[in-house]
Amino acid sequence: MTARNVSFTLNGKPATLAVEPRQTLADAVRQHLGLTGTHLGCEHGVCGACTVLLDGDAIRGCLMLAVQAEGLSITTIEGASPPEGLSVIQDAMQRHHALQCGFCSPGMVLALESLFAHTPCPGEDDIREAISGNLCRCTGYQPIVAAALSVAEKNRANLGAAAPSA
């Protein structure tokens, strides 16, 4: 099967790639663009290491074909990171020791980005649900949850919002 061009917005900029239809989005951003922060942990949609944002929502990068991205807006961990330093979520994760080997971390960051985009002040149950599709073999999740709760707390203070019932 010959390669075909696919054009989409990647990390806020236009991108055009020549891909085989069988190539997944995760594979394509890694191989064609060297954006290797999107990791392949299982390639069958369970581990979440390949998480990317599609129009702001966390999805499996290994379960979407690159050709399907035509005209869509995709954000990878490289696009979700500030030019220097760490984002609010990344910073909280470092402060809470919410990573060890780092292989799941980009996916975790994006799963949480997606959560906070919809729910600025999530409770623990919301957080556990948001990362339930992202496997971590090192941390036991507890420090990741703690990091996210600290961001929620900060957001709550900033927004002056009431604590959610969750």
Binding site: G48, I59, L63, A111, E129, N134
Partner: peptide, 9 residues
């Protein structure tokens, strides 16, 4: 059913 990223798609 599944998890937020699988339900998103």
């Amino acid at each position: 059913v599944g998890h937020p990223p699988t339900r998103a798609r």
